[in-house]
Design a protein around this nucleic acid. Structure first.
Length: 619
DNA sequence: TGCCAAATGGTGGGC
DNA sequence: CCATTTGGCA
């Protein structure tokens, strides 16, 4: 493999990087903390830096880059971007994991080396306890004085071993470990517990630690503002003083997970322990300058020292790009929203799936309010947090089963679709573990897919696109892959109930999408959310972007109790606003409550003002 | 029936 | 963290 000279290396797939990004990319001697606001291209920057390190030989074979993200989506996305830019033998040395997948992989490989009494058996089971389970445990074990949330945090935070003595909290944590290791014939581990096991393992085992250092001289951390205390501690145990260079990216203003255990001061801690250089990116590639100006007003309230970003996206719309829509009743609100969106869609300003409605909480209730008016106007609202069976639509769409079956069905539903075809081929190669160098194997997979495509086309031709057909069509796709093959390939499907949860969800959503579909392709489009207006919480919208966002409920009633001092709420507001590429509106409804006055005051200097329902619909 | 304290649920994520 | 619901008791 020929290497590229450092001076000659060029970014791949983009025109250029901003100067700050170049600086952060070329800094390979020490750790860097790349802070950047919304739309700065943090993930793209990581992909470029990985490409740079691999292509120039700064990370030479057999050394690897370890990239850690929080969500599976983000980890996959990063891996795909690197794979697109590097030859396979280089991309293979870019290991993109979620935090939990990384920790689990270490337990699965080296679990036998975990000191007793914590050494887990190979067939431990993953459990995901909720607050209920913790409360139940505390109640049944006589720890009535211990608060549930404190207990959950203590399990995640306590270093092993935990002695069964001292405070009630400590004894409860010790009792919990004991109980999880002595459940009826099984050992039950949660992800926080796996994290603790790994931390213990590498703290006590110099040879594993050394292997880790030799393998990964470079570590990337995505969304660093969300790092939990336990994760940070694990990183320190694993890499502090190892000479590994870290590149962490994040945005303090988007820190909205402290309530769920994110460190309040992750950036400061990181700078201190890893002697990191801080570099801020200044470009915003997502939003146009009129929106960026307003964003900056909110950003400055969060962090007065923040630099004004440079807007790099073009403004494509006339009229107001931000405003507060005022309604008297919820009926009026629903009707006007539907009418306004319908008009925008009709005049081709936006496609339905380019509009998102964001809520602070209780998406299901808001869906109930809005849906009838939307249906009346021929619009479809998709509440991505809604469950189909026992799985949320948003989670279902990210499942491997869904992605694989959907591609196969698309191959059968469309006459020509090279993208789906290639995707399906790669899926099959992976599922059947065919080596890319094995020509015979490749050929056989191709032939099998061709045969399947013919058959699937025949089935879909004879099967009307109506809800009653969902079961048969989905079954045909699953049978082609083989449920057993799928379950062997993905550990999360090994338990029958876990597999069924996803599989049932898949069939249910397909069935739903066939209610209004005119063709199989149309139904599959709808499955993926095309042609629908997304409804989601701010938390779910993090990392996404939409042409137009409508933020529902800027009123004080019950949930949106926003005061400027409550940092996390202000950050939530910032996250919501910065999802918009072109326009951001807020609704407020007199029937529900009083407007949040200080937000109006904050936004007034930027020219964001109230618009009543009459003016809204008269252009 | 009315009052207060305690409990519960909601903003999420991971193989 | 906050808001709402519940349960116990007068």
């Amino acid at each position: 493999m020929t290497l590229v000279l450092r001076e000659k290396w060029k970014p791949q797939g983009v025109d250029d990087l901003e100067p700050r990004a170049w600086e952060a990319l070329r800094q390979t001697e020490r750790s860097v903390l790349v802070t950047a606001g919304a739309g700065a291209g943090k993930t793209e920057f990581l992909a470029q830096k990985a490409t740079y390190l691999l292509q120039t030989g700064l990370c030479p074979a057999p050394k690897r880059i370890l990239a850690i993200s929080f969500k599976r989506d983000a980890a996959r996305n990063l891996a795909e971007r690197v794979a697109k830019r590097c030859p396979a033998e280089q991309a293979r040395r870019f290991n993109s994991y979620t935090f939990d997948a990384f920790a689990k992989s270490l337990v699965d490989r080296f679990g036998a080396a975990v000191p007793e009494p914590y050494c887990p058996p190979a067939d431990y089971r993953i459990v995901m306890p909720g607050r209920r389970d913790y409360t139940h445990f505390l109640g049944t074990h006589g720890f009535h004085g211990v608060n549930t949330d404190t207990f959950g945090r203590a399990i995640a935070g306590a270093r092993l071993p935990v002695a069964n003595e001292g405070s009630a909290l400590q004894r409860s944590v010790a009792a919990y470990w004991h109980a999880q290791y002595n459940a009826q014939d099984e050992v039950l581990l949660s992800f926080p517990m796996i994290n603790r096991l790994v931390e213990l393992l590498i703290r006590e085992n110099p040879s594993i630690l050394k292997a880790l250092h030799l393998t990964y001289p470079v570590v990337f951390l995505d969304e660093f503002q969300d790092t939990t205390f336990a994760q940070f501690q694990l990183l320190r145990t694993a890499f502090e003083g190892s000479g590994a260079t870290f590149t962490a990216v994040g945005d303090n203003k988007q820190r909205i997970m402290v309530w769920a255990g994110a460190m309040p001061d992750a950036f400061a801690q990181f700078e201190q322990h890893f002697a990191a250089q801080r570099i801020s990116l200044v470009c915003n590639w997502r939003s146009h300058e009129d929106l960026v100006r307003i964003q900056h007003i909110i950003a400055s309230r969060i962090d007065p020292t923040v630099e004004e970003p440079e807007a790099r996206a073009a403004r494509l719309v006339d009229g107001d790009v931000a405003g507060i829509w005022e309604f008297e009743s919820e009926d009026e609100e629903s009707g006007c929203l539907a009418e306004w969106i319908e008009r925008e869609v009709r005049t081709s300003t936006v496609a339905p799936h380019d509009v998102a409605i964001l809520v602070r909480m209780h998406a299901d209730e808001v869906e109930r309010q809005l849906a009838p008016a939307f249906i009346e106007r021929g619009l479809r609202l998709r509440n991505v947090a809604r469950n189909v069976g026992d799985i949320a639509i948003q989670d279902l769409l990210g499942e491997d089963l869904t992605q694989i079956l959907l591609r196969l069905m698309r191959v059968g539903a469309a006459m020509r679709s090279p993208e789906n075809w290639n995707g399906a081929l790669l899926d099959l190669q992976f599922l059947e573990a065919v080596d890319p160098a094995d020509e015979m194997g490749q050929q056989s997979v191709r032939e099998r897919l061709q045969k399947f495509a013919r058959e699937m086309r025949r089935i879909l031709r004879h099967l009307a696109p109506v809800p009653e057909s969902a079961r048969e069509a989905a079954q045909a796709a699953l049978d082609f892959v083989g449920a057993e093959v799928l379950r062997r390939a993905f550990p999360s499907y090994q338990r029958q109930s876990d597999f069924d949860r996803v599989w049932n969800g898949f069939r249910l959503l397909l069935q739903e999408c066939l209610q209004h579909a005119e063709s199989w392709s149309g139904a599959l489009d709808e499955f993926e959310g095309l042609g629908q207006i997304a409804l989601m919480t701010i938390h779910k919208s993090k990392g996404l972007e939409f042409h137009t966002i409508i933020f529902y409920g800027l009123d004080n009633q019950s949930w949106w109790s926003l005061t400027p001092d409550r940092e996390e709420e202000l950050n939530s507001f910032f996250v919501a606003f910065t999802r918009a590429k072109q326009r951001a509106f807020f609704t407020l409804c007199t029937e529900r409550g009083q407007p949040v006055v200080w937000i109006e005051r904050l936004l007034a200097p930027a020219g964001v003002r109230r618009i009543n329902s009459v003016d809204l619909l008269n252009e």
